[in-house]
Design a protein around this nucleic acid. Structure first.
Length: 346
DNA sequence: AACTCGGGGCC
DNA sequence: GGCCCAGAGTT
């Protein structure tokens, strides 16, 4: 088909030189695909290099403590990717005897590997004819074929997967999959795509009907909820502070933070001081409370806007859980906390 | 089918 | 402010 041929030719002439394109080692391809989930190449690239340097093989990754893996992942977001990456590395090493899964069905069983990643690794490393469907593929196909089925409806998911599977180059699935994604990222961009020099514009329905800007169609997601976070930055006279590990289901699982008080609205100095007097750690001890930032820092996540204040709590001593200032940098923390730690200059 | 999970970059 | 990004897992 002309679409498939044109795309693979375009790719051979225009592909970017990226480190994971120099190898077919499934460990490296898997690693790159996990890092690139919901993440642009520019943002993921330094993390890929860092992981390859620190964990050159799946055995090195499997041996590492989870906390080290999260530390290296710090700042990239979607931390379940790091936790699942590590868990799957351990599974491959200790349950599969270090033999990497070598087909779509087996890859799909790994934690953190869904339809997209299983297809990507299977096609790139093992030449399996498994079409990838990511954000780029949705965009390219919806425009070229003029499809307005919402890409995030169950109907759309199935339809685009089937279409991609039909179009994939059966002789060279690896290059076709990478070609259509690269084309979406570089040429058929979400905003201001470069239609002027597009090799597919003659057959592109959206280009010819001038509906490029309307495609792909996507069902809107709910607006982000506003939350109020008050972080307590304890400072003791012997240069220690407190960090706690986040547990349970929510954001930043297994990362560390300063003790947090979530409130329904912004707190004044006096209101927070009152709250702290009943706070377990401070029940019978004197403390001094000083706000660090006057205006709340608004940290934006996909589904939450965190209106954040850091409060410095001066105390005489801390219990055995106190963390020396020079150790603070060793903990994996969310970007929001990391920025504070840098700014505060522990 | 809807919701949750990050952070950065663009308009 | 809204949208997007080499998506996956849970409810």
């Amino acid at each position: 088909m002309i679409f498939t041929k044109t795309l693979t030719r375009w790719y051979s002439e225009n592909k970017r030189a990226l480190p994971w394109r120099k190898t077919k080692n499934p460990y490296y391809i898997w690693l790159s695909e996990i890092i690139l989930q919901q993440t642009q190449v520019k943002q993921g690239l330094p993390y890929y290099d860092a992981f390859v340097a620190k964990y050159p093989t799946v055995f090195d990754l499997a041996k590492a403590p989870e906390s080290d893996v999260l530390k290296l992942w710090q700042g990239l977001g979607y931390y379940s990717r790091a936790r699942n990456l590590h868990a799957s590395a351990k599974h491959i090493v200790y349950k599969l005897n270090g033999t990497f899964p070598n087909n779509y069905k087996a890859l799909l069983k790994l934690k953190g590997v869904g339809d997209y990643t299983a297809s990507a690794v299977a096609s790139i490393c093992f030449n399996e004819v498994a079409a990838v469907v990511d954000g780029n593929v949705y965009r390219v196909l919806s425009r070229y074929f003029g499809i307005d089925t919402p890409i995030n409806s169950s109907k759309g998911t199935k339809a685009f997967k089937a279409l991609a599977q039909e179009l994939i180059d059966k002789k060279n699935p690896a290059d076709f999959n990478q070609a259509i994604m690269e084309f979406g990222a570089v040429q058929c961009r979400p905003k201001s795509p470069n239609c002027a020099v597009c090799p597919l514009k003659n057959g592109c329905v959206a280009f010819n009907k001038n509906t490029i800007a309307e495609l792909p169609v996507k069902i809107k997601s709910a607006k982000a909820k506003k939350k109020h976070y008050n972080f307590l930055v304890f400072i003791s006279k012997d240069q220690k502070t407190l960090l706690e590990k986040r547990k349970g289901k929510g954001i930043w699982q297994n990362l560390y933070q300063f003790p947090l008080i979530e409130t329904n609205n912004a707190q004044s100095l006096n209101a927070l001081k009152k709250l702290l007097k009943t706070y377990e750690i401070l029940k019978d001890t004197d403390f001094e409370l000083v706000p660090y930032n006057k205006d709340a820092i608004i940290h934006k996540l996909s589904h939450q806007h965190l209106h954040t204040k850091f409060w410095i709590v001066y105390v005489n001593t801390l219990n055995a859980n106190g963390v020396s200032f020079d150790k603070v940098h060793d903990f994996p923390v969310p970007a929001l906390i990391g920025s504070f730690i840098e700014d505060f200059n522990f």
